[in-house]
Write a protein that binds this DNA or RNA. Structure first.
Lengths: 199, 199, 199, 199
DNA sequence: GACTAAACGAGACGGTACGTCATGTCTTGGG
DNA sequence: CCCAAGACATGACGTACCGTCTCGTTTAGTC
């Protein structure tokens, strides 16, 4: 029951145009990379005018952010089993799945865009990093409470150790590591973080 | 029996111009970021003609690579003590020192440039990643031989675990983590990788 | 037996809007020239919607025409004394008065608009030129009948000679000549056109 | 024997491009009028880049001026016979010939452009009006000296009377009057200006 | 000491994209 | 049916760089 400033006069925004623009932007992002994502190109491919893009987005950075997140379930329900280790493994694998393939290229492009515009990096932090990190911190705190952590484990360092192997290859290779490698890293890290039940 | 390919007729390359260009490129890179590094800007700032740049470099990517590596000792002699753990810690801290501050921003910019041009990412791999990774693999193999590793540690995963926390923050924050955080991560990782002497 | 074509259903045209639009258009015309007369600008300044303008006028040309003629008495009663020379002098001075100053600039702008749209030039001819020319032709014919013309004077050429000096400076200087200059020209022309009574 | 500031470094201006641009501009000016003369259109038609146009001309006004004057002999040698009346008739007919047809449309367009930009109207004055007016004033002064003028003729008014009928129709009809009409006007005006030899 | 040849600065060239603005059309809700 | 508001596709604006090109100049080695 939202009561906007009365009603919003004038012709309503075209949902068609909005979608065409986001689709075109995503396609170009994946196909040609952030460097070659131009507003004119998007307008051409989407069959819209440039001004329609500038009316709703601030520039190619904003556009790239929205285009990427249109492909992503922004607030996935994260399961919570009894085991913190299992929960983290599930989340990390899920993120890897989200980012692998074309969306991964878009994501890498997006991070790149972050250097060009603080808006973009803020948006990425706010819409990707923060929710996932918040969840992770909370889960880690609960694990500590439940005595699931080994003694002397600092939560912040533990999180860095668990997540970094997922992201860092983007810097050099543009790709998310394969599931097997990721698992090996996770297992190794988990060994030094989580208390395991004695067999 | 001519020693060189003849002797290179004509006016020799101007060392002055080369240095002015690299300096200008680095300055712009650090001051304004990769996005705003333009060939025209470099030529203007260096007081050279554009063609001199295009003669020796393929584009702004190539130029950025050279400008960055001009600030870095490309093949540092890595010490080797008896302890693998100490050696890795030394190397990682050294890399962090190299990348922290302005050069770090240049490095991030460089990695970004990698998406735009395969030449750049190849150069980064060849001049940064490969030598460091080669050393690390070798050192890790020697550690395994010497029985310094805990049982069940896969070298590849171990390396990923050790190095990722250094790089991944570049993706989101444009910075290298502070020494303290890095140490905490390293210690945590080391605990699951290296066999420690019993007290 | 309905008196009007039906009665015109629906909301009646807003006289307020019409006037606001014409006023705004005239103001912009005088203040910023025809070049900078934009429909959007008029709508903004008049506080109306663009479509209201497009509904009633064909474009900025039409609008300029109406705005200009709103400042002019379109069919002034022309006096007729016994002397053709005096009557012409009176009319020409009257026209000069109408066109001098801001309205003159608007008029020049209007003529300029004529090149862009045949509608405009037709309107200018119909609402400015034709009534004045018709009067002049009639007066000249009557003068011929009354024997006021010198022998060998072709009416068409005589009219051109009398009126041209009023208009032609608009082309180069954007202004109507001062009264004194105009008088000198008129006197000179009159000498070769009108028979003067012997003293 | 001009000694420029040494030599003019850099690639020399392309004469080809200059000509293609002027030709295209003139063609558009004549074909579509000043209103529809756009820099982009000229660049498209001339096969050049926009920047080449902006490098050498300040805008469409400047361009139109140059395009028009490229078709006109800017400083025609004016004959001088013994008779001032004949000389003026020759000059006026020559101007009419210059302006009739396509160049006339371009000229009208140009005058229109004068309202939009003071640069243009200054250029038109400087390159068209002034030389012709200067010549006319001088010739008129010489005629006065030689006693060719009727008594009481003010040179300024006489010039206005002679030249106005040529220009003023441009305002309403876009065309230069036909030779016959022009002659009639000229004869009528001449009768009140020049002393004629007794038969 | 002239000749050859490449690198140099300068800067013009045809392009592409930028972000802004006005066009004329349309689609709402409300009077 | 009119009106205001304002979104829409279109297209020109003037700017900034792109990467290529064409100059005249400079700086070596080679004859």
């Amino acid at each position: 029951m939202e009561n906007n400033p009365r009603k919003a006069a004038g012709r309503p925004r075209s949902e068609e145009a909005r979608e065409a623009i986001l689709l075109a932007a995503l396609a170009i992002l994946v196909r040609e990379g952030y460097e070659n994502l131009s507003i004119e190109g998007v307008a051409r491919e989407a069959g819209t005018g440039k001004s329609t893009i500038y009316r709703w987005w601030g520039g190619r950075g904003d556009l790239a952010v929205d285009a990427f997140f249109a492909t992503i379930d922004e607030t996935p329900d994260l399961p919570e089993t009894g085991s913190a280790e299992e929960d983290f493994r599930t989340q990390i694998n899920g993120m890897a799945r989200d980012l692998r393939g074309p969306p991964g290229r878009a994501f890498a492009a997006l991070l790149m865009g972050g250097r060009e515009s603080p808006t973009v990096s803020a948006a990425v932090r706010k819409r990707w990093l923060d929710p996932r990190r918040d969840w992770a911190r909370m889960r880690m705190a609960r694990a500590a409470e439940a005595g699931e952590l080994l003694p002397g484990v600092e939560p912040r360092a533990a999180l860095a150790l668990l997540y970094s192997p997922l992201y860092s290859p983007l810097l050099f290779g543009n790709t998310i590591p394969p599931a097997q490698d990721l698992s090996a890293c996770f297992d190794l890290a988990a060994r030094t973080i989580f208390r395991r039940e004695k067999a």
